[in-house]
Amino acid sequence: MINHDEAAVRPLTLAWVSRHLEVGERIVKTEALRGGITADMRRLTIGTQDGRTRDLVLRSYVDPFYVERAEGGLNREAGALTLLAGTGVPAPELVAVDPTAAHCEYPSLLMTHLTGRTVLDDEGVETRVPLLARQLVAIHALRPAERPRKYVTLTTSDTVVVPKGADAAVWAAAIDVIRRPTPPYEGRFLHRDFQPGNVLFAMSPPSPAGPQITGVVDWAATSWGPADLDVAHCSTNLALLHGPAWGLRFAEAYEEAGGVLAATTSERLYWQVRDALACSEEVQSVSQPWREAAGRAELTTRSVEERLDAYVIALMDALG
């Protein structure tokens, strides 16, 4: 999952990073971290003055499409990491940010490295789902003095991509669901991309208490909105990774952990359906890192489309 590549960090960026190190520290190694979709991620090993090492993580937006959109995302992430410091939510600490590439070749953010790894295997999912739910409840409990921006949903009835071979009638009914007015909601602090790929677990050595969450990463989409939206997003990812039943299970686990969802079934399913349909537009970009970085070779674009279809059918059955 780690690709050694010493030359990948450009000279201006290396100089910028060096200016934010402690006296006597230097960069001794860089490693590419695989699995990201929008940004180039690097782990930087820093040699300290006393002969030890520590790690930092560098996020850089290098794709022209994302470079144009980097400033807002990096500023949001920097603000979120600053807010999260000392809250008990395990997030990286902000070291420095260059959102407009004033000093680096590309817009970049430098943060501390967290221990643990993402776990996307089917084995053990029944143990991890309650942990994910409890962590999300803790995130939603935050009450920042200054709220982040209002949540954004870009999917419309015209942008949904119905998978080949999907039940056309069910998908048409699902698309009708997101044509409805947005249900009322009580605002919460949202991660907005909370899903297994952005949660780190301590898995080795095995703990008597079982796996523990060591970090939540990728706070670039932080916003303010309904808790249901974060729950729906994690539910969709679980459905595609592990099967539709796990997508349905996550909302139950969230409530069992003390989370509060929308008042009615139809309101809850509005958000669940909306997120599932949003995923229809990006099945290929989502499934590729699962295959390449997580070793889930069976999660081809086609198989993930089939799971998405099955999940939408399950949601519409629950809606009645």
Score class of each variant (00 low, 15 high):
Pro144Asn: 03
Asp121Ala: 10
His20Ala: 11
Pro181Met: 12
Gln288Leu: 11
His242Val: 00
Gly47Asp: 01
Val28Glu: 14
Leu120Ser: 03
Val162Arg: 08
Thr82Leu: 11
Leu132Ala: 10
Ala166Pro: 09
Asn75Thr: 10
Ile178Met: 12
Glu68His: 00
Gly72His: 15
Val95Pro: 13
Leu74Gln: 13
Val304Ser: 05
Phe65Gly: 12
Val162Gly: 07
Gly259Trp: 03
Ala310Arg: 07
Ile139Phe: 14
Arg180His: 04
Pro163Phe: 01
Arg26Val: 10
Ile139Arg: 14
Asn75Glu: 12
Val137Asn: 12
Glu123Gln: 06
Val283Phe: 04
Arg274Leu: 13
Thr265Leu: 11
Tyr151Ala: 13
Leu109Thr: 13
Pro183Phe: 09
Trp290Cys: 03
Asp50Ala: 12
Glu146Asn: 05
Gly225Arg: 05
Pro163Met: 05
Val162Phe: 04
Pro183Val: 04
Thr300Ser: 11
Lys150Gln: 08
Ala202Tyr: 08
Val260Leu: 10
Glu123Leu: 01
Trp246Met: 02
Ala276Gly: 05
Gln195Asn: 10
Leu229Ser: 12
Glu105Asp: 07
Ser108Lys: 08
Lys150Phe: 06
Val177Trp: 09
Arg26Met: 09
Arg143Val: 04
Ala209Asp: 06
Ala263Asn: 00
Ser108Gln: 04
Val119Pro: 05
Asp317Thr: 07
Phe65Ser: 14
Ala15Thr: 08
Met203Asn: 06
Tyr185Met: 03
Tyr151Glu: 08
Met1Asn: 15
Arg43Asn: 09
Ala251Pro: 08
Gly73Arg: 12
Arg188Ser: 12
Gly24Pro: 00
Ser207Lys: 14
Pro205Thr: 09
Tyr254Asn: 05
Cys279Glu: 02
Met111Tyr: 06
Arg268Ser: 10
Asp193Ala: 12
Ile27Val: 13
Asp5Phe: 14
Tyr185Pro: 06
Glu282Asn: 15
Ile27His: 03
Arg54Gln: 07
Asp5Asn: 15
Ala172Phe: 07
Ala220Ser: 13
Arg307Lys: 09
Trp224His: 06
Asp158Thr: 08
Ala245Thr: 01
Glu123Val: 07
Leu241Ala: 03
Asp218Gly: 11
Gly187Phe: 00
Ala78Phe: 07
Leu261Asn: 02
Glu298Leu: 02
Leu83Trp: 10
Thr112Lys: 09
Tyr151Gly: 09
Leu200Lys: 11
Thr53Asp: 13
Trp219Lys: 10
Ala293Trp: 02
Thr30His: 06
Gln49Ser: 09
Ala262Asn: 15
Asp158Trp: 02
Phe250Pro: 02
Ala253Pro: 00
Gly247Phe: 01
Val286Thr: 11
Ser235Phe: 01
Arg249Gln: 07
Trp171Lys: 05
Gly247Glu: 01
Glu146Tyr: 05
Gly259Thr: 03
Gln284Ile: 05
Ala173Arg: 15
Gly36Trp: 06
Gly197Ala: 14
Asp5Val: 14
Leu132Glu: 06
Ala239Cys: 07
Arg179Gly: 15
Val283Leu: 13
Ala85Asn: 02
Arg42Met: 09
Pro144Ser: 03
Ser287Arg: 02
Pro90Leu: 07
Val9Cys: 08
Val17Ser: 01
Asp121Arg: 06
Glu25Arg: 08
Thr214Pro: 05
His242Leu: 00
Pro184Arg: 09
Thr159Ala: 10
Met203Asp: 01
Gly243Phe: 00
Ala80Ser: 11
Gly73Gln: 12
Ala39Met: 00
Ser207Glu: 11
Thr30Ala: 11
